[in-house]
Design a binder for these strands. Structure first.
Length: 475
RNA sequence: GGUCCCAUCGUCUAGCGGUCUAGGAUACUGGCCUCUCACGCCAGAGACACGGGUUCGAGUCCCGUUGGGACUACCA
């Protein structure tokens, strides 16, 4: 019989949700879901200087966007201060902690000095045996065992051995009464019944201190799983200077949540050769055993591929709601939903992000298409003016269906009659209709745009080509 | 500096002593498809960091070297 699995994600609201944080959130969520356990959200806001409610909101929003839900919380550490004090008291009375009156500046000075002499820059124990009592301005320090070793069992890394002499008499309660990270985490993890601590690699060195704290408190130690960090292309810890690092930023760039989710899971975790997973599959298949032990580099190109995959895969009906904000952002006039859906269909295989799709969609949205200079120069010229004229005429005179199939037939016959390849006509018309040399299929575009719009645009293109002719001859 | 971690194609990874002349994905190159661009399909190029062991046999186990990274706060 097993204890119910309880995991947690505990960000501090000092910034937007980071890609790396998102991945550890995902791993925790997946692990608890896989084991039918509980997933708790906790906000570590004891750094009152840097924590803001805006960031808290942003983090929650990012989590929701990714489809990560939590069973409890969000808990806020600043609302649990009594709890930390109670545990601190316990440690103080049992002799595991002592008060220290050294000023931060003094401690820092001695630290620098020790470092300069090539020694371990840890607290030198000045107040360790002074028997100081609580008083304003004093911090509470942990009386760290000076000898022996601490072994931590890590699901990903195996056994890690630390020499206690390497450890510090860390501060538990700051002079302002706030608990420090290493202390608040363990009392939270104890009181919330966390069974598995899944977190970033950057916490391994904190772990022995925390284990010692668990032991001093007489509490049992949870399982640990330290997941390797995500690095930038320069192999340094991913940070702002590598570009966008927040999940909000990726959302705003037009990435789909399922794509980012899929990509992040696969970064550092694998299941044979499989690349694409549904959320359900992930819940079913995710285990910590398949998490790799080396750091991985964030690869935008692969994220883009996965995003493109999901864009192609999704129904245009689903896509349209997500796309609309991007269309608004561009100031396009409003269009019927059904019109947008048809337009999206033609662009799904051609766009990687929603943002790119919104850009590529301009000719569906705005009647006065902008001609790409290169395109206009090559295809809207005196040579093609006559051509355009014929086409406009032919289309105008034409009765009957104005749909993709009929149009293709019509254009093929037209090309045949003129004794040219279809592509010769197609490119001219394409530029006239879209302003570009690359676009969705010509006939599906015409079908969607409709006869009147097509004629209007081609006439404008003809004008342009004619004007081109004039300016070419007059100069 | 100290402590800890890591090391398979550029990148993400499969590999858990023999089935590896190392597989997949992405990116790249070429071809096919084709009204353009994509998508799709086919093909190509591309890796076990190095040195010692252990073993009948090592990408896989051990040690060392080198190279990377994290941590070293009254931040989390």
């Amino acid at each position: 019989m097993h204890k119910q699995v309880v995991t947690r994600f505990a960000p501090s609201p000092t910034g937007h949700l980071h890609i790396g944080g998102a991945r550890t959130a995902i791993f925790n969520w997946l692990f608890s879901r896989h084991n039918e356990g509980k997933f708790i959200l906790r906000i570590e806001d004891t750094d009152t200087q840097r924590s803001t409610t805006e960031y808290t909101e942003s983090i929650l929003e990012s989590l929701r966007w990714l489809g990560i839900d939590w069973d409890e919380g969000p808990y806020f550490q600043t609302k649990r201060l009594d709890l930390y004090r109670a545990y601190a008291e316990k440690l103080y009375h049992s002799g595991w902690a002592y008060y220290c009156e050294c000023s931060p500046e003094e401690v820092e000075r001695r630290r620098q000095e020790a470092f300069a002499r090539g020694l371990k820059p840890k607290y030198d124990g000045t107040c360790r045996d002074k028997g100081l009592t609580p008083a304003p301005g004093r911090v509470l320090r942990f009386r760290c065992p000076q000898g022996g070793i601490t072994v931590i069992r890590d699901i990903i890394k195996g056994s890690l051995v630390f020499d206690n002499s390497e450890l510090d008499d860390l501060v538990l309660i700051r002079s302002d009464g706030m608990p420090t990270y290493n202390f608040s985490v363990i009392v939270d993890d104890i009181t919330m019944g966390i069974t598995h601590v899944i977190r970033g690699d950057d916490h391994v060195n904190n772990t022995p201190k925390q284990v010692l704290l668990y032991q001093a408190l007489g509490e049992s130690v949870p399982e640990f799983a330290h997941v390797p960090l995500i690095l930038g292309p320069d192999r340094k810890r991913l940070s702002k200077r590598h570009g966008a690092t927040s999940v909000i930023a990726y959302r705003d760039m037009g990435f789909l949540p399922e794509a980012l989710f899929n990509y992040l899971v696969r970064l550092g975790w694998s299941y044979g050769d499989q690349e694409i997973f549904t959320r359900e599959e992930l819940v079913e298949k995710f285990t910590l055993e398949h998490v790799g032990s080396s750091a991985s580099i964030f690869d935008m190109e692969k994220l883009r591929w996965i995003n493109g995959y999901y864009i192609r895969k999704k129904s245009p009906q689903d896509l349209v709601d997500q796309l609309i904000p991007f269309l608004k952002e561009r100031g396009y006039p409003e269009r019927e939903r059904s019109y947008l859906i048809r337009a999206i269909q033609t662009l799904q295989a051609r766009c990687v992000t929603l943002s790119e799709m919104a850009d590529a969609m301009d000719f569906y949205m705005v009647d006065e298409v902008k001609y790409e200079p290169q395109a206009a120069e090559k295809f809207l010229t005196p040579d093609t003016a006559g051509f355009l004229k014929d086409i406009i005429e032919a289309i105008s005179l034409r009765d009957g269906q104005f749909d993709e199939r009929a149009l293709e037939e019509f254009f093929r016959r037209l090309a045949d009659e003129r004794g040219v390849k279809l592509k010769v006509i197609a490119q001219v018309v394409r530029v006239g209709l879209t302003g570009r040399t690359a676009s969705p299929g010509l006939f599906e575009i015409m079908d969607i745009l409709g006869k009147e719009t097509v004629i209007r645009r081609l006439e404008r293109a003809l004008d342009y080509a004619t004007a081109f002719q004039k300016s070419a001859t007059s100069s």
